[in-house]
Every structure is written in C-alpha cells, then in structure tokens.
Amino acid sequence: MWAALPRWAYTDLDIGGVIIQEGEMVLLGLAHANVDPHLVGDHQGFDVTREANRHLTFGHGKHFCAGAPLARLELDVLFARVVQRFPGLTLAVPLNELEPRDNLLTGGLNALPVTW
C-alpha cells in the first residue's frame, strides 16, 4: 500500500514539463517524500548523524504541522534519555529482518526488537 495525500492545484502549473491545470487533483506520494538523494544523500534510512535537511516529515507551507516544535523537543529528550538509560541498546535482529509498516500513513516498523 502506498500512502498519498490529495491536493488540488490553485493555479495552472508546469512541473518538469508536466502541466497541471487549476483545480486538478494531485496525489503527493509520501513513500518517496524524504528519500531524494539531493536531500538525504546516498543513505535513505534513519541516521542520527545526518546533518539537517529539507525533509517533509512535518509537511510544508499551510499544511505544516503546528506541533512540529513539540515533536522535535520530545524526540531530542527521548533519544538523549534512551542512550543514557540503556547504553548497550542494540538491535536484536539483523537490519534486513525489520518489516516496514505499510498500512498506515505514518509508516514505521511492525516491531523493533532490541536488547540491552
């Protein structure tokens, strides 16, 4: 299953030679939103050492998530505390055994088995 958000063009657009007429619906495919090599480099997975990039995780423009600053703060605190509390935290299965959750708009994993 591929998640997509419907949006309607407010004006005629030419995007890479494709003409989108005012009022036409465009489906924004989320599966590829944050994997453009120009944005994330060669490594498309989660990388805590990655420098800031122009991802679309919290939306864009008038659809930008109002809770994004709180979510970022929560993640900063979470990662700092998890590393402090469980310094030996490691993945309990090989990386290729992780199963992506493809039935929800938010994605994620079906499970994340870890040991510490």
Rank of each mutant, 00 (worst) to 15 (best):
M1L: 11
M1S: 11
M1I: 12
W2M: 13
W2R: 11
A3T: 07
A4H: 01
A4C: 06
L5A: 09
P6W: 04
P6E: 04
P6T: 05
W8A: 06
A9K: 04
A9T: 03
Y10N: 09
T11H: 04
I15H: 00
I15W: 02
G16E: 04
G17K: 05
I19H: 01
I20Y: 00
Q21H: 08
Q21G: 05
E22T: 05
E24D: 11
V26F: 00
V26N: 01
L28N: 01
L28S: 02
G29Q: 11
L30Q: 02
A31P: 01
N34I: 09
N34W: 05
V35S: 12
D36L: 03
P37D: 09
P37Q: 10
H38D: 11
H38T: 09
L39I: 14
V40Q: 02
V40W: 00
V40M: 01
G45E: 08
G45K: 04
V48S: 13
V48W: 08
T49H: 14
T49Y: 13
R50M: 12
A52E: 15
N53S: 15
N53M: 14
L56M: 14
T57C: 09
T57R: 05
H60Q: 08
G61Y: 03
K62E: 11
K62S: 13
A66H: 09
G67R: 07
L70V: 14
A71L: 11
A71W: 06
L73N: 05
L73P: 00
E74W: 04
L75P: 02
D76N: 10
L78P: 01
A80Q: 12
Q84Y: 03
R85S: 11
P87H: 03
G88F: 02
G88T: 14
G88A: 14
L89C: 13
T90R: 15
T90C: 15
T90H: 11
L91G: 03
L91S: 06
V93D: 07
P94C: 05
L95Y: 14
L95N: 09
L95P: 01
N96F: 07
E97F: 04
L98R: 02
E99R: 15
L104K: 11
T106Y: 04
T106R: 10
T106P: 00
L109V: 12
L109S: 06
N110W: 10
L112E: 05
L112V: 08
L112S: 03
P113S: 13
P113E: 11
V114C: 13
T115M: 12
W116R: 09
